[in-house]
């Protein structure tokens, strides 16, 4: 029994990482129907930007701030203006493919100009364990979980409770009508991309000490977050939390009780079941059949 509890707690810790990455994923989908296959690389890159700034002699806190700013500039503004804008009205797929190519590009740039080696990254949360219910939990994981929950609560409040949020939602759901009633649609969409860019930079600061700064670490993260987003409900920001935590726990339970060789299969079966019986996801809204 205590073993089960151990597994669940450890799974929640890993799941929190997936959740944090998945939040931005769902945000982009919800507000601009963008499937960002480079989301994992978006989390990998800011850590390297920060390492580069530190290499120039800046202290860690400054590097983090510069990294977040650079992330907003590159992964928010430039991504939106250069890649998303020209392609958005041509449907979901070409843009999704372009983000796939972008993922290759980011990985190669990091590998070529930084290193193919994994580098350690300073932790902003103190390294160590705390004991909860007799089980050692790393403070880093708690930090990730806290930020993920804060991000979701913040975003949900913003989207549902503020007039800015309502404008963002209107811009996302029906740009034409939104424009007519005076919503600055372009600015609203840009805002969501900037929020995502800041989120991935934060995620990068929190996750990299655990995963290490490595050019390929985005692959595993991106895919896990993508599946977490689907399971949780692609069109709801809070679904990302549920999906991420669920995938983390299920993965551990599958490895312990089903088979370590097939541990990756169980979340997939979960995904198929979810689509068959609850296609809107755990916490998602049913999407209208758009025909």
């Amino acid at each position: 029994m205590s073993n089960l509890l151990d597994l669940i707690v450890a799974g929640l810790a890993t799941g929190a990482i997936y959740a944090l990455v998945a939040v931005g994923f769902t945000l982009l989908w919800q507000t601009s129907q963008t499937i960002n296959f480079a989301q994992g690389e978006f989390v990998m890159l800011p850590a390297f930007l920060m390492l580069a700034v530190m290499h120039l002699g800046a202290p860690f806190w400054l590097a983090v701030l510069v990294g977040i700013a650079l992330s907003a500039l590159l992964l928010g503004l430039a991504f939106k203006m250069l890649l998303v804008d020209p392609m958005l009205r041509h449907g979901v797929l070409p843009l999704a493919i372009a983000t796939m190519a972008l993922a290759i590009g980011i990985k190669e740039v990091v590998k070529q100009f930084f290193s193919a080696e994994a580098s350690p990254f300073p932790s902003i949360v103190p390294v160590g364990d705390v004991s909860i219910l007799g089980r050692a939990i790393s403070l880093q994981s708690l930090g990730v979980l806290a930020v993920a929950i804060l991000a979701v609560v913040g975003l949900t409040t913003l989207l549902n409770r503020t007039s800015l949020g309502h404008q963002m939602q209107a811009a996302a759901q029906n740009p034409t009508v939104a424009r007519i009633i005076g919503v600055p649609v372009e600015r609203m969409i840009l805002l969501t991309f900037l929020i995502n860019a800041v989120l991935v930079a934060l995620a990068s600061v929190l996750i990299t000490p655990i995963y290490l700064a490595k050019f390929s670490s985005g692959e595993v993260l991106g895919q896990a977050a993508f599946i977490a987003a689907i399971v949780g409900g692609f069109n709801q920001v809070r679904g990302a939390i549920a999906g991420g935590l669920l995938i983390g726990v299920v993965d551990n339970l599958a490895a312990a009780y089903v088979s370590t060789q097939y541990r990756a299969a169980v979340p997939m079966l979960l995904l198929i079941l979810m689509i068959l019986f609850r296609p809107q996801g755990l916490l998602g809204r049913a999407e209208e059949r758009t025909v």
Binding site: P94, I97, A98, A101, Q112
Partner: peptide
């Protein structure tokens, strides 16, 4: 050499931006 995949990614992105329908 070391930059070929970068060029490749850039070419695909540029092509899709220029013509999203391929």
């Amino acid at each position: 050499e070391g930059y070929y995949l970068m060029l490749y990614a850039a070419a695909v992105i540029a092509l899709l931006i220029y013509s999203p329908s391929g």
